[in-house]
């Protein structure tokens, strides 16, 4: 499924000018593939940064309670955000 959102047309409409359809031309086209690519790149970066955090917290944190607590908060919040992104992407593309 291809979803086209044309921000140029958008701007022209908002400024009361005649709408020019750029969808077929040089408009911004967000296809499902691009959205999935954005999602997977973000998740890949998230995994890398999380690995760096875990490495630092475990190696230099010395197993402190506060480090463990913050680690829990980080994974709870970030996990929620990843799931939210995934859910909204599914909803956008397939609902």
């Amino acid at each position: 499924m291809n979803v086209c959102i044309n921000f140029y047309t958008f701007l022209y409409y908002n400024y009361g000018m005649e709408g020019i359809d750029f969808i077929e031309g040089n408009g911004v086209i967000l296809s499902a593939k691009i959205l999935w690519a954005i999602f997977f790149v973000a998740v890949f970066l998230y995994i890398i940064i999380s690995s760096i955090f875990v490495f630092h917290w475990n190696r230099y944190g010395g197993g402190e309670r506060k480090i463990k607590l913050m680690q829990g908060i980080y994974f709870a919040v970030s996990g929620f955000l990843v799931l939210l992104a995934l859910g909204s992407l599914f909803a956008f593309l397939y609902s």
Partner: peptide, 10 residues
């Protein structure tokens, strides 16, 4: 064209 709200949440 699609539910823009979901895209924004994404």
């Amino acid at each position: 064209e699609g539910q823009i709200g979901f895209l924004m949440v994404f």
